[in-house]
Amino acid sequence: MFDLSGKAALVTGASGGIGGAIARALHGAGAQVGLSGTREAPLEALAAELGEGAHVLPCNLSDADAVKELPKRAIEAMGSLDILVNNAGVTRDQLLMRMSDEDWQTVLDVNLTAVMKLSQAVMRPMMKARWGRIVNISSIVGATGNPGQTNYAAAKAGMIGFTKSLAYEVSTRGITVNAVAPGFIETAMTDKLNDEQKAGILTQVPMGRMGSPEEIAAAVLYLASPEAGYVTGTTVHVNGGMAML
């Protein structure tokens, strides 16, 4: 099931835990993968692990010119671009009363504006091909909110509205646009929490455990597959029951 042979996918934030797992899953299903991220060493390591069909495409998504170039570089490297996974994200957590304009803007630029720009850039090849998949990695906090994350939650909720609107626009062209909203996942982002904080969060997760990056990747793989051709504008929540939406 889920055969992506002949497809080319671009994954942003592939140097992170979830992005790496997504790239492995898509590559494992036969797709070529473009690995984008700011840190080149982990991208190179992942490309070496995956072998043939993996391409390293470093990019800083807060740099508007670099964002514009990224899809072109991906197409040059892979010959086409059929699947875009907007996974890159940054946090600058702070109570709103103490939040700087810069903390707000950086999070909006990387987590939301880059998604718009990359999606816009891949529209033309996808429309011509009459096939395309855009999968946006949102977050549970986009739906539930979280203190200290007004910027991050706004960007992640914005992503869901963006996903639905674009899904409408291109629905007749064989292009689907969906989101995946992870809950509490084992990554570098959540490693920063101490045991007490983790235990506190886990009391709110009916399954009583954190999710794995592979469990997010599986949802992305499904949405990227030909089998999900009738699914568009939706958000798949992968959160152990933390929020039943």
């Binding site: 033309r124 429309m127 011509k128 626009e169 291109v170 062209r173």
Partner: peptide
């Protein structure tokens, strides 16, 4: 409206 975009392309 999407057709017009494609025509221009």
């Amino acid at each position: 409206s999407l057709d017009t975009v494609e025509l221009v392309m």
